[in-house]
Amino acid sequence: MNTPVRTARARTSRLRRISGTASVHAVLLGYTLIAVFPVFLVMMNSFKDRRGIFGEPLSLPHAGTFSLEGYATVLSEGSFATYFGNSLIVTVASLFLILFLGAAAAHALAEYRFRFNALLKIYMIVGIMVPIRLGTVAILKLMVDLNLVNTLLALILVYTAQGLPVAVFILTEFMRTLSRDIKDCARIDGLSEYRIFLEVVLPLIRPVLATVAVFSMIPIWNDLWFPLILASSDATKTVTLGVQQFIGQFTVNWGAVLAALSIAILPVLGLYALFSRQLIAGITSGAVKG
């Protein structure tokens, strides 16, 4: 019997594997730094005084430079509590409508055979390709006619219309994969079609609803266009618009600008920390493979 030996061939291929792994990490780590550093830089400097911001922008705040004066200015000058409240109301209400109405429509499209089913589905999802902003001129006219300008309801309705196509598309695709048996079983158990939707289908699609929620939430929370056009009054400003206008006024007060940016970033990062697993699982589950 020959004793197996580690040949030169085996050694080089092992070396190649290790250096390959190292370069993969070098690229990924390098780009991760590029992606995160600017955000980190802003948040770090928001805790410094003016001298610290300009004198040593790249070092962490320390006793000599630490200051919350930026945050003090933001809290006294801007009505960020109101803006947050507005953003929260608009985002939550829109999300609820998108998910609930979208799921109901998707359920009807996936579950029942009726005339124009296919046509209606195309009608609903064509909105994915056509950005709602192109209708802004008429949306503003419509809101003026409906007396909804400078109300949060205007934003909620527009964002719902904007979010429905993607929601209907993803949910219909997913609902088609649901077992027909379980709905039939509920029918035999005597549930009405409404209760089948509420008590059987909705619990089954919860994970996908979460994905659609995170997806739809980002553009709503971050939007500048519609708040600027439909609801720019002080009482209805959202965070994004509020930050934009606040910074416009306080361009010379860097501490305040950095603090305002950080205040706008933090909740998003917090939510992301909570839901990133769901968001990424949703994206990678093929729900958006088109």
């Binding site: 048996d181 039939d184 079983c185 029918r187 035999i188 005597g190 059987v200 619990p203 089954l204």
Partner: peptide
């Protein structure tokens, strides 16, 4: 309606409410 026919059905995919 199915619920009133006095039948019960066992499905291939079990169809249990998860």
């Amino acid at each position: 309606s199915p619920a009133d026919r006095g039948i019960a059905m066992v499905f291939q995919s079990y169809a249990l409410y998860p």
